[in-house]
Design a protein around this nucleic acid. Structure first.
Length: 420
RNA sequence: GGAGGGGUGGCAGAGCGGUUGAAUGCGCUUGUCUUGAAAACAAGUAUGUCGGUAACGGCAUCGCAGGUUCGAAUCCUGUCCCCUCCGCCA
């Protein structure tokens, strides 16, 4: 959520920033509602002050109220109630107006309204040739991926990993978690996967993206579309103690996404599925220098690609293509030699104070100081099925077997997936 | 699922209709004392919001939402969460 106070102070700045994203924010309505809000608060507070004074006097003097006082205070009470009712309506509309407005892009985010304007920041060394044997062929032939079983159990866009395929995914996840915890200082978290509505609002997934979320009606719980949601909720409503920032969390969880808006895209294999595993990094940091932290996190994700021997590139997303809660985003893509395309395996964003404001997550810089909103950053490190695809396609050898990257062998316990 | 108990400030814990934003203790901060530290003593120590350049003042908040009342942390209703016992269960 954007700061109401800041919007009121400099509405044109916000209008301009949001226009870069292709939004047409209802700034005028917000200003109008805020004006009304302040008026109503002042009226109600003044009435309450009178009522408090009268009650206090009666209490002090240890006497019964006079009939006049009772009549007068009843009237005051009624007026307060009606003003409060009106205020509640105004606040609700204000909230409903602000919640669907996305974060403002940082100044150095490139202009552009769609992915065509994204900028390739860097491409790694490594081949970008193709052998034309995609994972949906080779992995199925090797007996490590069963698309039909996935479909029969759960329907389209579900899949089953088998044997060494399942172990490969587990090895990848375990290795990534170890790198993030042991080398990059993250604390591993195993969060709930069913999430309350408030927590979903806090991360920015609700109210705008309910169409892409799975939900249990009866308990009113939502399935995580990414561990970001849970990690972002870890400190909601809290004031984080001095000297505890930065907080760095990493979690491996499934991600559940309906993805029905993009039917027809990435349909083959397991590039785009309803349930996939992902290792997610999340940091709460002081606002100063949070931009540099974003760059650092890109490094924490690309190092994984490097060690797996994958060719990758880093994209900076343009203003129109960054996510709802993001102020600046880098995507990392790895080369798929089987289908001759780049696969997005990570999206790394700074959400500035957008999520912490929604969440009521604050921190105290030092003892006695007033509270501030921390910045939150998130990034995949990395998304598993696509990395799995790249590892399998990249390791494919002449004889049809798949060679494992060195770093994974301690985790898999074997170095090749043999052809059947 | 059944029966009972409970949710108050950073923590512990009073208060159960009227100068209670809230006793007391602990913790924390600052000061005095001390060569320094400890101890002791003193002062301070919630969040949000409205007005104000500020000093400061008003208002709100005792899980949450309603209600009763001139007045609610205190009474009533609903709801969420926690604990104990029984049942069920990976």
């Amino acid at each position: 959520m954007l700061s109401l106070e800041q919007i009121v102070r400099d509405p044109e700045k916000f209008r301009a920033a949001l226009t870069r994203r292709g939004e047409d924010p209802p700034i005028d309505r917000i200003l109008e509602l805020d004006g009304r809000r302040k008026e109503l608060i002042q009226t109600a507070d003044a009435d309450r002050a009178t009522r408090n004074n009268v009650s206090k006097t009666i209490g002090n003097e240890k006497r019964k109220p006079t009939p006049e006082e009772i009549a007068e205070m009843r009237e005051t009470g009624d007026r307060i109630k009606s003003v409060e009712g009106e205020l509640a309506t105004v606040l609700e509309e204000l909230n409903d107006t602000l919640l669907p407005i996305p974060n403002t892009p940082l100044d150095d985010v490139p202009d552009g309204l769609d992915e065509g304007s994204n900028v390739v920041v860097r491409t790694s060394e490594g081949p970008t040739d193709t052998h034309g044997i995609a994972h949906w062929d080779v992995a199925v032939d090797l007996g490590i991926l069963d698309l039909e079983a996935g479909a029969s159990i759960s329907g389209a866009r579900f899949y089953v990993l088998k044997g060494k395929g399942a172990k490969l995914q587990r090895a990848l996840a375990a290795w990534m978690l170890d790198v993030q915890t042991e080398e990059h200082g993250y604390t591993e978290i195993d969060p709930p996967l069913l999430i309350r509505q408030e927590t979903m609002i806090g991360s920015g997934n609700l109210p705008k993206f309910r169409d892409n979320l799975y939900r249990d009606e009866e308990s009113d719980l939502w399935l995580v579309p990414t561990a970001e949601v849970a990690l972002n909720g870890l400190h909601q409503g809290q004031i984080i103690d001095p000297d505890t920032l930065p907080l760095k969390y990493v979690a491996q969880t499934p991600s559940f996404r309906k993805e029905h808006t993009s039917a027809g895209r990435d349909v083959r294999g397991i590039k785009r599925v309803h349930q996939f595993e992902k290792v997610e990094m999340f940091r709460y940091v002081e606002p100063e220098g949070s931009d540099d932290i974003l760059e650092e996190m890109v490094g924490e994700a690309t190092v994984l690609c490097e060690r797996l021997g994958l060719t990758y590139r880093v994209l900076q997303l343009c203003a129109g293509d960054i996510g709802f809660q993001s102020a600046k985003t880098y995507d990392i893509e790895v080369w798929s030699p089987g289908s001759a395309e780049w696969l997005e395996v990570s999206s790394i964003s700074t959400c500035t104070d957008f999520q912490s404001r929604r969440n009521g997550t604050r921190y105290r810089p030092e003892v006695g100081a007033s509270t501030r909103l921390p910045h939150t950053l998130n990034g995949s490190g990395l998304a598993l099925p696509r990395i799995w695809i790249a590892v399998v396609e990249n390791g494919l050898q002449e004889d049809g077997s798949v060679a494992m990257p060195e770093v994974l062998i301690p985790y898999t316990g074997w170095s090749t997936i043999e052809a059947l």
